[in-house]
């Protein structure tokens, strides 16, 4: 009986007993990390306010660059949160490392090799986000000035197309899906265009005819002789 039940149980208990301190240390590390990250975020936000960081960044044009791309949060908030996440992730990694589980250790080792790709992917995502917002806004304004009724849709289409392209590139860099993501993107994108073409050409043939006729008629009617300058 001893060999059948108690032996493995003892081994399991011994292993658990050996693992518990590591788990405890890991949990403590993550908790400490959470505490330090939260404290640092608060301190940085307060210090930034004391040092007038938001005003300075407005003066040097950093706020405007962020606003141009649709990020409206103050720079102090962004810095505080960036520090929060960097500290927290570092402590989570240390906590996982403290578990001394070979599989996790291997994963972490792989993770460190993976970090440059993660950073590059983050940069691509960030740039894609900024560029998507900028181009989306430019397309929206141009469409409104051209008198196109579905301007909002055009702006969003451009914005999300750029963002999806950036996401595809980032995922490919991370090795996720690779060809699958690219093919999925091509299929979805092509599908949307085809669906629109079919909808406009077949489903809404009469509507399309009416719309084009109206456009041509309006074009004739809307010509005026005003010289603006």
């Amino acid at each position: 009986m001893d060999n059948v039940f108690l032996g493995p149980l003892k081994k399991f208990v011994t292993k658990i007993a050996g693992f518990l301190p590591n788990l405890f240390i890991g949990a403590i590390l993550i908790l400490i990390g959470l505490l330090i990250a939260t404290l640092l975020r608060k301190m940085i936000c307060r210090l930034s306010r004391l040092l007038n960081m938001d005003r300075i960044s407005e003066k040097v044009g950093l706020t405007q660059i962020l606003q141009k791309s649709g990020i409206r949060e103050p720079v102090s908030w962004l810095v505080g949160n960036a520090v929060y996440w960097i500290v927290l992730i570092s402590f989570v990694i240390m906590g996982l490392d403290a578990l001394k589980i070979p599989a996790v250790e291997n994963l972490l080792q792989e993770f460190w090799f993976y970090v440059p790709n993660v950073i590059a992917a983050a940069i691509i995502l960030g740039a894609g986000y900024l560029l998507g917002n900028f181009l989306g806004r430019a397309a929206l304004i141009a469409a409104v000035n051209a008198g196109i009724a579905i301007s909002g849709l055009i702006g969003k289409f451009v914005k999300f197309t750029v963002f999806i392209m950036a996401t595809t590139m980032a995922l490919e860099l991370l090795g996720i899906g690779e060809d699958t993501v690219l093919i999925a993107f091509a299929v979805v994108f092509g599908g949307v265009v085809l669906a629109l073409a079919i909808a406009f050409g077949l489903g809404g043939r009469d509507a399309a005819k009416g719309y084009i006729d109206k456009m041509l008629l309006e074009k004739k009617e809307e010509d005026d002789d005003i010289t603006h300058i």
Partner: peptide, 26 residues
């Protein structure tokens, strides 16, 4: 005399107000 299409202008104004409201608010 100069031809003017007031309706087109007011339509453009309304389109701008509705579609660009987020940007105009800034």
């Amino acid at each position: 005399p100069i031809l003017v299409n007031v309706e087109r202008m007011t339509n453009m104004f309304s389109l701008g107000i509705s579609e660009l409201s987020d940007l105009l608010s800034d």
